[in-house]
Design a binder for these strands. Structure first.
Lengths: 138, 138
DNA sequence: CTGCATCCGCGAAGATACTG
DNA sequence: CAGTATCTTCGCGGATGCAG
């Protein structure tokens, strides 16, 4: 490797203006906050189901595809409740009855999830094709 | 539709019309597809960084916050490449040079990620408050 | 019915060393 | 510089049992 005087390391690709912003420089990109919350296996299903209305624990469990365990459902709704996306109402009856519903914050997230679903459905064929092509080349 | 003489067990919460749709009944909600792809720890950072332009491997690694290992970066970009979101260009030089950029498909995802980031930034205070309240009650 | 506690398997992610 | 291979660690998620 010849060491020229003006021969700097890189051609300097000149990064364009940032398309996606991160507010605080100290903090990471804001997307992580949402994704950490929705990225787990079940949260999105809970949000989707609750987007249609109030649900009880068992109703949620039955409505969610993929046989979610009680443990996982509990953990998931607890996290969502802690983040203020889900409201949990306990009726002191026998047997106990607990209702779950989206808060305003949760409902505002619904639009995003909807957008995500739409994008996914729209581009699913393209993704499938890309995968097949990639796998074939391999 | 009137119940009439029926005294059924449950008040029948009457699920409203589904807010979020899933196309094929056999398949799950489409959101999972995107989330499985973006839900991992690093993918979103790669997309965010590439949204601003072409990047080389090392550039990507340095730009991504949180010290991503070579292994993880490789795995991440490979997955994104396989799904047709990222294009990988290898220049047979010495030392080797590899450039990564978003495909059209990847760029179309950028809008969603942007929306996610905006939502996250906008509601971060609300979420933080909810968490504090929840933790305090505990 | 709703929820918590415990144990455990497995895959994701990290660290390190080595190759082209 | 870019990437692979190997080993280890860690936490999610599943299964089960128990309690209010």
């Amino acid at each position: 490797m010849s060491a020229g005087h003006t021969a700097v390391t890189t051609p300097v690709p000149q990064p364009d203006e940032p398309v996606i912003v991160c507010d605080t420089p100290q903090d990471e990109c804001g997307v992580r906050d949402v994704l950490d919350r929705l990225g787990d296996k079940w949260s999105v299903y809970v949000v989707v189901e609750l987007a249609s209305g109030i649900r009880r624990f068992k109703e949620l469990q039955r409505a969610i595809p993929g046989d979610i365990s009680q443990r996982m459902l509990t953990l998931t709704v607890r996290r969502l409740e802690r983040d203020g996306l889900v409201r949990r109402t306990v009726y002191p009856t026998v047997p106990p009855q607990v209702e779950y519903e989206l808060t305003e914050l949760g409902h505002s997230l619904t639009h995003l999830v909807k957008a995500l679903a739409d994008w996914s459905i729209a581009h699913r064929p393209a993704i499938a094709a890309a995968r097949e092509a990639w796998d074939a080349a391999r």
